[in-house]
Amino acid sequence: MSPELKEAYARYLLTLADDEIVIGYRDSEWTGVAPVIEEDVAFSSLAQDEIGHARLFYTLAGKLLGKDPDHLALLRPKEDYYHARLLEDRTTPKYDPGGNHEGGGDWARAIARRFLYDLFDDLRIEGLLTSSDPELAGAAEKIRREERYHLRHGEAWWRTLAEGSIEARTRLEAALEVIWPDLLGLFEPAPGEDRLVEAGLIARTTDALREPWLDRVYPYFEAHALPFPGEKIREGWRMAVEPRTGGRHGVHGPGWDELYEEMTMVRKLEPEGAW
């Protein structure tokens, strides 16, 4: 593998890993405060799966870079994380040990983000099944099997919120309006993805997933007459929303400032600690 290809591949693996650890961490925050106890269990499990996927991608990246996966996960500088910005915001109330928790939290936003991200991730993983790296191809197969449970969970909640009480529906619509720019930001590619396609490591670049994703999510909006900020014309989807990008280059928002401090706090106290 040429040094340029190796660099691009490691960067791509880190991007995958960062997406998964960030949504995994954020969704784990629902443990104990979800609307029903089944969802405490479900979100804990979903989060655990995603962190497991992150661990695998950090392990593969670590092999290329000669680095420890835990180091890659928890000891990189804050601006060297490449997850999509969609994933970094907190959707739960901010916990305060004194009992003065801040903000109400937004279950609708948590569900909308998770489901629409899972649909994106499914397409991305599909493009790794034929990877020329047998470890990545095998991992993709495994991840897809796990993710089927996530998609079914997401579909059920999407329907519940869209067709449930007026409050649920209103909240879902409001959450979607907020996250659309970040949803479109998912398709920002990592540097050097073209090289990976050429080498057969991935089937499609991340920006090439935009059209198939829009084709796939549109019916979920249409089925429940949810507002959809775009239309399909002959050339493809024309969206009325500008994507918010930067995540794939380490540019993030306040959600990341908060999360980075929290998720790296313990590790920084004892960087060489064994767990």
Binding site: E38, V41, A42, S45, Y149, H153
Partner: peptide
């Protein structure tokens, strides 16, 4: 089926 998720993954 009550929950697709349980006490372990």
């Amino acid at each position: 089926l009550i929950n697709r998720f349980g006490p372990t993954a």
